[in-house]
């Protein structure tokens, strides 16, 4: 494995991308989970899918478009989807969560239409759905690096405000923080991270990488900082373990990554239970 890693560029691309995504997806995931927005990640990943499908369709109709990386259309759709969700949340003030299924089903519907127009499933599309070790190109890697740097800088810059608003939105507003702006910036970064994660984890499973490591970490963490650190740790474990097993067993990495993340979650739940029992007995 190590040898092939030095030998094959595609493996390097996959691993570096995986390691980066293993950091930023759980990092954003912590905020997503504590803000109870876990479903937004799901909705946006489905919108990203329609973006990818749109790109495949346009390339079929107009060949030069094939030169455009589908990641861009994916990101574009994802960001637009995020903005629409925000807009809908203000329209349905008393049913804020309704925005999520609306956008999600719309995303899927649009995606399915694009896919059928583009003559159905291709291996390409399979890679986008479930992730792929071999599909990550050097350009993909560069896009991932650039977006990740932007996301990390952004989150660092608004960390304080994001924490306050996540913990107690009303308190944040009473401090006069620009709650809407912060939320907007956050949701756009989420959209971008979802779009760049799909090459490795696949669209259908990207939200799992944002939520499962966090679900495990908040069972153990006492502080918010710990929650972030554990989440990233569990995220990395899942991604690296998932990529290695995907490579050896010739599986789609999205599946192996998520199964490992679920395994970690199970272990933390059992650990917490055992410790609790032990405390009661002892």
């Amino acid at each position: 494995m190590i040898e092939s890693l030095f030998q094959f560029e595609f493996l390097q691309n996959a691993f570096i991308t995986g390691i980066i995504i293993g950091i930023i997806a759980p990092l954003l995931g912590v905020f997503i989970v504590v803000r109870k927005l876990a479903l937004i990640a799901d909705a946006l990943s489905h919108v990203t899918l329609s973006g990818i499908a749109a790109s495949l369709l346009i390339s079929k109709w107009w060949v030069p478009f094939a030169a455009v990386n589908p990641l861009y259309t994916g990101m574009l759709f994802s960001v637009v989807g995020a903005l629409l969700i925000e807009k809908l949340r203000t329209v349905y003030k008393h049913y804020e969560e309704l925005a999520i299924p609306i956008i999600m089903s719309f995303g899927v519907g649009l995606g399915v239409i694009f896919i059928s127009l583009a003559n159905g499933f291709t291996t390409d599309l399979f890679g986008y759905l479930f992730g792929s070790v071999s599909a990550v190109s050097r350009t993909d890697l560069y896009i991932v690096i650039i977006i990740s740097v932007i996301v990390i800088i952004t989150i660092t810059a608004i960390y304080k405000e994001l924490f306050v608003l996540s913990f107690d939105e009303e308190h944040g507003q009473s401090l006069g923080l620009p709650a809407k702006l912060i939320h907007f910036i956050f949701i756009v970064t989420v959209a971008l991270v979802i779009a760049i994660s799909m090459r490795i984890v696949g669209i259908l499973l990207v939200s799992a990488l944002m939520t499962l490591p966090v679900a495990a970490s908040i069972r153990l963490a006492k502080s918010f900082k710990q929650a972030i650190i554990y989440s990233i740790l569990f995220g990395e474990l899942s991604v690296i373990g998932g990529l290695i097993s995907a490579y050896y067993l010739d599986l789609a990495p999205g599946g192996t990554i998520v199964v490992i993340a679920a395994g970690i979650l199970l272990v933390t739940i059992l650990y917490k239970k055992l410790r609790l029992n032990f405390k009661i007995v002892g």
Binding site: V34, S166, F167, D168, I218, S223, Q226
Partner: peptide, 9 residues
């Protein structure tokens, strides 16, 4: 005002 399961010290 807040979610008691929030991981914060």
């Amino acid at each position: 005002s807040f979610n008691t399961g929030f991981p914060a010290t």
